Simulated assay, not measured.
Amino acid sequence: MLPFRQVDVFSSRAWLGNALAVVHDADGLTDAQMAEFARWTNLSETTFLCRPTDPGADYRVRIWTTSGELPFAGHPTLGSAHAWLEAGGRARGEDVVQQCEAGLVMVRRAPRLGFAAPPLRRSGEVDGALRDRVTTALGVDERDVEAMAWVDNGPGWVGVDLGSARSVLQVVPDVAAFADLKVAIVGRWDSATARSIGADVEVRAFYAAGQDFGEDPVTGSANAGLAQWLIGAGALPDSYVARQGSVVGCDGRVWVEARDGEVWVSGDTVTRIEGRVDL
């Protein structure tokens, strides 16, 4: 039996963030056991905390979806750091250093848990054929797209700027057209609405793998990639709050800040279930 937590990430209000399953002391598990449990939880990600193999790290995390392992993901980073700290983990420095397949990721603790966005593995222009696939999958006209770019920091995201937040909320994806696409879309709220809802932009993230399709409740990696792209292009300010999950019954908030050449992605993180799991 291994210690287990289920964590609500990117929301301080119960059940409105993105759920993450975290298994502690997982060094003795095989890949097959991790994959099997991740499929069983049926969550977007399940993580397994292990001893670090890099001397600069405080812990190592393995991040699994229902269909395979990821080199990096955002809400699993915050949820895993939260679970590690809550279980008595002690960082050697002011920040927590997480080791994952993508490398070392810094996680700061205040004012809320936040990670330094890792470098994009792929950025820049999306070729014409893929651009057509993305607009078709989103059910939008090419003229509705203000900009599109690769924002891939591990999962494989393509970012789409639709200009307005209301345009983002109006998207009805063509599930059959998604195939293997992972697409994050963003739009801006007017100042009055932004003040009333406590968010400057609206984000949605769609992912597909084989027959599986979903809309993620709140996505750290997608928000990180969008921020690196659009802050860098001058299309978003250095500091803003994103809302995500509105269409799928959630109400997440992601705090984004560009500082000293790095983009930080932060959110509230709360344990909702604690116990032990037999793997």
Rank of each mutant, 00 (worst) to 15 (best):
Q228A: 13
G198W: 12
L162A: 08
G124Y: 11
T193I: 14
W189N: 14
D216T: 03
A117P: 02
V140M: 09
L169Y: 11
G187M: 03
V126S: 03
P111T: 12
A149N: 01
S196V: 11
D144G: 01
E142H: 12
S123G: 08
I231N: 02
A116G: 15
V145W: 03
V201W: 09
W189I: 05
S196L: 15
T193R: 08
G234E: 13
V151M: 06
A233K: 13
R195L: 08
P217I: 07
V203T: 15
G154H: 14
D132L: 05
P237L: 08
D200K: 08
L236K: 01
G232C: 09
P237C: 12
D141Q: 12
E125I: 10
L138G: 14
E142D: 05
D141H: 05
A117E: 15
D212Y: 09
D132K: 07
A116P: 00
F178M: 14
R166A: 14
D132C: 03
S167I: 01
M148Q: 07
Y207W: 10
E202W: 08
D174F: 01
R133P: 00
V140N: 07
A137F: 06
A222Q: 10
P173C: 07
G128H: 12
G225F: 13
L226T: 09
A137L: 08
F115W: 15
V183N: 00
W150A: 01
S239T: 14
W189A: 01
S191P: 14
V134L: 05
A176Y: 02
S191N: 11
R188S: 15
A224H: 05
S123A: 12
A165S: 04
A233Y: 05
T219M: 05
D141A: 10
V151D: 00
F206G: 00
V160G: 00
W229H: 13
P217T: 07
A199S: 10
A192T: 14
G225L: 04
D132S: 15
K182Y: 04
P217K: 15
G225R: 09
D132N: 06
P118R: 10
L230I: 07
A235I: 03
G220W: 11
R112E: 14
D200V: 13
V160S: 02
D174E: 08
T135D: 03
G214K: 04
S221N: 05
L130E: 06
A184K: 06
